[in-house]
Amino acid sequence: MGLSNDLIQQKLEERFKDVVLQTETSYDMLSVEVAAPEILNVLQFLFDDQELKFRFLTDLTAVHYPAFKDRELAVVYHLHNLVDNCRIRIKVFVPVQQPDVPSAVNIFSAANWLERETYDFFGINFTGHPNLIRIQNVEEMDYFPLRKEFPLEDQTRIDKDDEMFGRGGNFDFGNRQSDGSPTQIPESTGGNTQ
């Protein structure tokens, strides 16, 4: 264990002064938010640096936060340095209207399907991906099902609304407007962005 979170944070902030937007450590894992257009440079730097050596992509997924204006979608990378056994989480936020994130396929082959899956469920447009098509769902599908505007339960049932799941107010999966009324499900959100 020669690698500490402080050192990683310091090196990242030194190299990418304006790119690293936020850092936090929770449950012993360093979480770094970086600017979306620079994500490949950050990943490449973490991969190549002789001390950091984050050369294993453990996981790649996305999260939808409808309440975050103009940064609704977060893409989350989990990287692992197998030599020093250190994990790190990298996040980028993009607006839901234009969810463009550069594809990491050229750094990690593992990113190929993970990005396809993330596209499939969240509609993140991974620019430069060789084959960005749906992987789990049918190709004819014209929406991104893991976004919060698609509720799991029947909309007409009030016994299954967000209040019952401990989410009062307007920050409840994005299904409410600020005055508390339910949002309309938009007609197809653009479908295949390709």
């Binding site: 996981d59 999260v63 082959s109 593992a110 190929n112 899956e117 799941f165 401990g166």
Partner: peptide, 20 residues
């Protein structure tokens, strides 16, 4: 997010990743 259910849950499924 402090609710009664996970806000988001993702499974890292090993064979999905290596099957590619």
């Amino acid at each position: 997010d402090g609710g009664r259910t996970p806000y988001r849950l993702h499974f890292r499924r090993p064979c999905f990743i290596y099957y590619q």
